[in-house]
Write a protein that binds this DNA or RNA. Structure first.
Lengths: 257, 257
DNA sequence: TGTGGGCTTGAATCGGGTTCAAAAAGCGGA
DNA sequence: TCCGCTTTTTGAACCCGATTCAAGCCCACA
């Protein structure tokens, strides 16, 4: 309606579209050829722009990587939004959060590697401040889901009232357990060296031990395989029917377009 | 005694000494200027050798980094050797393992960053096979200590007999928890964004929850701050008197010389 | 249709890891 | 001690890819 502004407006839209294109293509490249396969000039050429144009959007290669990670983090975080509302006990919903993350990581190995690489001090240092903030922001829905579930568990008496520990700090346990297990599982040859297999099964069992240790009801024996397996299946079924779950080992597509 | 061999022998010794020199200086460089501060040609010049000579020892920069990590890992792993023999209950000895690791990481932040960077797929791919094996091997005493403590706990009835979980798999829980918390604690600005502070205190509490969840006696309420603090202090005191401990928050020196 | 400022371009620059031909050093035998 | 031969060392040159920036282009506005 305002012709004066519209041109400037269109420019911004075009600029955003171009940025999205760069991010999308960069992600493809990484998926196909790995992190090393991503080269700034090649990427620019792929998108039919000059190298310099790419640098209009991203201060550095690392900055671009952070943008890719933020995009995928937003997608990942979205999956957690519906979890607090699921028809499950609070403890099972907490498990649902863990399972959702496991499944996402399993289906997006490149995303996992990317974030691991990004938070490396050397790399992180080259990410611009707005990009960092953006990436942190993108993960917020996850912590909100955790917060909601923990708070409700306390309200309902499933979890003893806090003495000194906030909701976030409570969620920190499973979070660290998850992150750590991902790290170990992905370090080539590490767990093999100790003859440990199926790390995610162990993650689930240790998760139950952790929750039981905090007296989150209904307590469940982490060393009773059939109970653990049954609970996992039950929660996975609910996730699937809510459209959050993942078809078992079929590689879920990610292309947003 | 065999003059024929002695020359060859001396050569090997000299070569090893030179390698040690490279590793030592590389570590200094990293400590002082960070990972980026380590440049192959500068390092060689520092040691008064040509760049090419450095490449006689290390296939690549990454290979050198792995060697540095292996050296420090050996030092770190050494600290765990005496833990199974401490005059403490099995559960407290398990805590001793966790505390020892926390303290080591706190005193060697560069070591933590280095390993985090190393296991990154991109980097790990450029580490030679023998070097990888060496690094894995260097950590073995740690898993041996864990194995010993878990096995004894089962023998003594502190921990219920295993149904389906090996000693290593039991240790995997605290291990992953540790690794994960280190990651989170070191990701610049991450925990701050969620208003979480003193991550290592939380690590200790979640560790207790985890152990209690596995019914490792004596069970201990992770949300009773004074009990947790007391236990931590008690175990730290034993560690200190065994010469393993670390003077509280005074930055312990690491320079081996 | 003219023009000025902002955008795009891509060749040049830069930085560091890695290589390798030449030089030096070490070796055993004469 | 000297001599060929082998092994090791040397460091300048090479390579690769991220980043820069001077030159030219384009478009809005007059």
């Amino acid at each position: 309606m305002l012709p004066v502004m519209s041109t400037e407006d269109r420019k911004r839209r075009e600029r955003e579209a171009r940025e999205a294109l760069f991010i999308e293509r960069a992600h493809e490249r990484i998926r196909e050829d790995g992190l090393l396969g991503l080269q700034m000039s090649k990427l620019a050429a792929d998108c039919e722009y000059a190298t310099g144009t790419l640098y209009q959007h991203f201060e550095s290669r690392e900055d671009l990587l952070a943008a890719v990670a933020a995009r995928t983090t937003r997608e990942r975080a979205g999956r957690f939004r519906a979890i607090p509302g699921l028809a499950l006990g609070t403890r099972s919903r907490m498990l649902a959060i863990v399972l959702t993350d496991i499944d996402f990581a399993a289906n997006n190995p490149d995303y996992y590697r990317l974030t691991q690489y990004l938070v490396t001090e050397v790399v992180w240092a080259n990410v611009s401040a707005p990009r960092r903030a953006d990436l942190l922001e993108a993960g917020r829905p996850i912590s909100e889901a955790v917060h909601a579930v923990v708070a409700e568990a306390r309200d309902q008496g499933d979890l003893p009232p806090a003495r000194e520990i906030s909701e976030e700090e409570m969620g920190l346990g499973p979070w660290a357990l998850n992150v750590g297990m991902q790290s170990l599982a992905n370090a080539q040859g590490l767990l093999d060296a100790y003859d440990i297999h199926r790390p995610y099964d162990h993650l689930i069992r240790h998760f139950h031990a952790l929750m039981t240790g905090w007296r989150w009801e209904p307590r469940l024996d982490p060393d009773d395989p059939s109970v653990v397996r049954g609970e996992t299946e039950r929660v996975r079924a609910v996730l699937r029917s809510a459209g959050i779950g993942v078809e078992p080992p079929e590689r879920g597509r990610t292309t947003a377009e």
